[in-house]
Design a protein around this nucleic acid. Structure first.
Lengths: 233, 233
DNA sequence: ACCAGCCCTGTGGTCAGACCACAGGAGGTG
DNA sequence: CACCTCCTGTGGTCTGACCACAGGGCTGGT
């Protein structure tokens, strides 16, 4: 067992045993190194990996934000992996969009069975903020992403939410670049907002099938639009 | 920009620009450190992260397996993240199973449109090997996992395959422990093999809807069975 | 001319010790 | 009582070193 893997295994075991929970602090790096009989750089390698996977967060100084804390950001880790593999061109963007449509379609279908979910109120609020005139594309897309995540979260499946968030995050920069070359962004944005509202309305009405169909069309339609204007151009 | 993040960003940029492709070698750690103006431990932190995300693989010594090579194992990185977050109890096993059923259901539905896909031949072969009498549970489950992955891959969506593989890998150890406490494993195994065959038959017959229904029932049924015998026990 | 063995070189893996910036908290000081 | 100052412990980084490893070239013998 290499030193680096030993640290990782140790932390995972502590988590699995419940001796380490979300919000708790890891021992200091120097302490951990001594306890496990490895050097501090080795400990740091393992902690960096945990950081990348969204399991811990590190902060310098003192106080509650300092030290290494256990968090739970599964989407962060998955998004990082997806983004890197997108860069290697081994994960085609089209497949990524298809998976997102699949998951989000299923999510809104499930969400329609709980039309009073608080996350739907949040989604409504986000839609209102997207309506503000003169909003810049960057802010718009952040709100757009948050809307889709809120919708998915309303379905109550944490894994779906994490994967969906990761998929959205992984393509965020790509989307930002793509919309910059669209011929008529305000017109597109207006259409997207209409589609958002239609999806949310269907969910609130309890019509899961309609909501799923609309959201899939929304996602695939937008994807077709920006690939058409960015790949050939 | 911290030193560690700079290395990560540099590698990602090289990948995105196509100057670094799958199969290529990263510069040696000492060289990379000098090029980027950081120390070797800092470079190592970044490489460890890339390793954990399934983007590179490192080997000591000389020859083709030595050095740090770019690979493409998106499932590995996602699986690591899922496994850790499963340990934190923030991703419920039930949600994970539900997502798997969703993706695999969609996959076999799509696979039924290409019933001659070579991965289906592989799946067939795996089923045959699962039929061998006296097979131990460990080998069985490896073949089982491979069968489901082959089935999913036949649908041709790389992201679905990666996520599906990751979901399966993340729970692999849990499943192994769970089946050990089942009252009648041979009987269960026989049923699972029957279900596998039925799914594959439906795919080959081009009946996507039936295949999807069968595979979802297969996954959820097995999950119900081992949670019933492990949680209360 | 051939071939078996040895060393050389470059790789990742690890360690030890040091210095830095940071931020809260304890203590002194007005 | 309020303010300020240092002290302490944290992660972030660097330097330089040693190790195990494995291929490739060299060297010696045949």
């Amino acid at each position: 067992m290499s030193g680096y893997a030993a640290v990782l295994r140790h932390v995972e075991a502590e988590l699995a045993a419940g001796r380490l929970t979300v919000g708790a602090q890891l021992p200091a790096e120097r302490r951990l190194a001594e306890d496990l009989g490895v050097s501090r750089p080795t400990v740091r390698e393992a902690i960096r990996v945990l950081q990348a996977l969204g399991v811990v967060r590190s902060g310098v100084g003192s106080g509650p934000d300092a030290g290494t804390t256990v968090i739970a950001d599964p989407a962060g880790g998955i998004a990082a992996a997806l983004r890197l593999h997108l860069a290697t061109r081994r994960l085609p963007m089209a497949d990524l969009v298809a998976t997102r449509a699949l998951i989000e379609g299923a999510a809104v279908r499930a969400a329609a069975r709980a039309p009073g979910h608080p996350d739907l109120d949040l989604a409504e609020d986000l839609l209102a903020r997207m309506d503000e005139p003169g909003i810049d594309a960057d802010t718009y897309h952040q709100l757009d992403a948050d809307f889709h995540v809120a919708l998915t979260r309303a379905a109550g499946n944490a894994v779906n939410t994490a994967v969906m968030t990761a998929l959205r995050d992984a393509i965020h920069h790509t989307v930002l670049h793509a919309v910059a070359s669209l011929p008529d962004w305000p017109r597109t944005a207006a259409r997207l907002r209409r589609e958002h509202r239609a999806v949310l309305r269907a969910v609130r009405a309890g019509d899961g099938e309609r909501a799923a169909a609309l959201v899939v069309r929304h996602i695939e339609g937008f994807h077709r639009e920006w690939t058409r204007h960015v790949s050939p151009g």
